[in-house]
Design a protein around this nucleic acid. Structure first.
Lengths: 115, 115
DNA sequence: TTTGAATATACGTATAAGCATATATAAAAG
DNA sequence: CTTTTATATATGCTTATACGTATATTCAAA
């Protein structure tokens, strides 16, 4: 992936919020991201698919749920940029809201699996 | 400017090469950028205009030449991202070529002004 | 093996981006 | 003035993005 292609991944608000939320939280399933961002499921899924196809994210199915995370095998130059992107996005109101909705979410899959 | 808007500025190869070259060299006129990137003048000018309009670059006319530089009045979160972008882009072949063409350029305005 | 929840994809459409070519403006030189 | 160099913009075109809606797929549970 070229630098410009990487920045294009971050150039859409929905994708940027997904990536930075994953950078902060580690691993989230589609329904958690859908709840956190308060957007339609197909919209989230389509953006996650494009990020998977370009290699920025990897997915893993666990039962009914498909979890996404940042690909740990990315080129070295990408990680500091993702870090700085998170630092920048953490200053925004929408990211604060996203985090709040995520943490207030009922029936989060991980919680269910623990019981 | 939102983080996503900022990343959109970097998401086009031509704009990214302009921005990183300006980050490294400080201040360049349109004809220097045109030579360095080996692209058409209208193409460079159009991208510089869009970067000026979103506030990422500022321009200043000096005689015949219009110089562009990174806007020093940008929000704080932007500068580390530009730094990391340069670090990433410096690893690419095209950036090496851009720098080489710039430094080999004949009749660079600054040099002419010095004599 | 049917039902429901989670996720993915297809399709049509609206909008935005990017490009090449041509032309316009602005300053300097003759 | 007229020309030349540097830069900006307009126009017409093609392609890419993003979206909503509808539908398909996958898994688990009953």
């Amino acid at each position: 992936m070229s630098p410009a292609q990487f920045f294009k991944c971050l150039s859409d608000d929905t994708r940027l919020r997904c990536i930075t939320l994953l950078q902060k939280e580690g691993k989230l399933c589609v329904c958690e991201l859908t709840t956190a961002l308060a957007l339609s499921q197909p919209k989230i899924s389509r953006h996650l698919a494009s990020l998977r196809q370009c290699g920025l994210l990897i997915d893993s199915r666990e039962g009914q749920w498909v979890y996404y995370q940042i690909n740990p095998a990315l080129a070295d130059w990408i990680f500091p940029l993702i870090d700085e992107a998170l630092t920048a996005v953490e200053l925004t109101d929408s990211f604060t809201s996203d985090l709040k909705r995520l943490h207030q979410m009922d029936n989060r899959p991980e919680l269910t699996m623990c019981c």
